[in-house]
């Protein structure tokens, strides 16, 4: 066994861990900001709005994330026009490409989760808010958003864990997050066992912490939904 190599590479794993966490948090933040208005629009919009948003979520939920990532990272280089535009310095960076893929993918799942949360909002709560004379903006801020977020917390938590796991795909486009570090160690030292086991354990610890955090959040904010 070659565990001493792993110990010597602790710094690499630490920077990998930092990238994994950074990718997860950044993707979660941007996809959340995208998904909330999309879910509200899907729920309250007309037939055309609904069809467009459903089309977007179908495309991104119906195809593998790996393909979406490759379409963005390798695929966009095919277009001459794009390669000569001011966007190219950004679009040729693997970091921007994985973030773009993760955000678009996760926002599609989150939109559907939030829209389902809204669909379960009791009709009476909306009518009560109207009867109080709340404007659309106040209703959204005080009634729809809190109801949507608390009701979809369990499923959204699942999505957050899935997204954290999905960041391992970033290693396929040269990024050195946890999986990338492990792959590099296997190639450099020609050991196949220890690096991946270490990576697996790190993900396990991350998952357990995230799940613990989510349970706490559920008790804290969605506790009132539990039927006693």
């Amino acid at each position: 066994m070659n565990w001493d190599i792993i110990l010597d590479s602790a710094g690499l794993y630490l920077s990998g861990l930092r990238l994994t966490l950074g990718l997860t948090l950044a993707s979660l933040l941007f996809s959340f900001l995208l998904a909330v208005p999309l879910a509200l629009a899907k729920w309250s919009g007309g037939a055309v709005t609904r069809a467009i948003i459903s089309g977007y979520t179908l495309l991104f939920r119906g195809t593998p994330l790996l393909i979406q990532l490759f379409l963005i990272y390798f695929g966009l280089a095919q277009f001459e026009l794009l390669r000569e535009s001011w966007l190219w310095p950004w679009l040729s960076s693997p970091l921007v490409c994985v973030l773009l893929a993760f955000v678009l993918n996760s926002a599609a799942y989150s939109t559907e989760i939030f829209a389902a949360g809204l669909a379960h909002l009791p009709r009476g709560e909306i009518e009560a808010a109207r009867a109080f004379g709340m404007s659309a903006w106040v209703r959204t801020r005080r009634i729809y958003l809190p109801a949507m977020l608390t009701r979809s917390l369990p499923l959204y938590g699942n999505e957050a864990v899935m997204l954290m796991h999905a960041t391992s795909l970033a290693s396929t486009v040269t990024l050195m997050e946890i999986t990338g570090v492990a792959r590099n160690l296997t190639l450099n030292y020609y050991i196949q066992f220890e690096p991946y086991v270490t990576a697996g354990l790190l993900y396990l610890i991350l998952t357990l912490s995230l799940v613990g955090l989510l349970h706490w959040a559920e008790r804290r904010w969605a506790g009132y939904l539990v039927q006693r």
């Binding site: 391992s168 795909l169 990576a199 697996g200 993900y203």
Partner: peptide, 12 residues
């Protein structure tokens, strides 16, 4: 199975 990413399990 639910705590480790698919890709890492596949490599393992």
């Amino acid at each position: 199975m639910r705590g480790v990413p698919d890709l890492v399990l596949l490599l393992l």
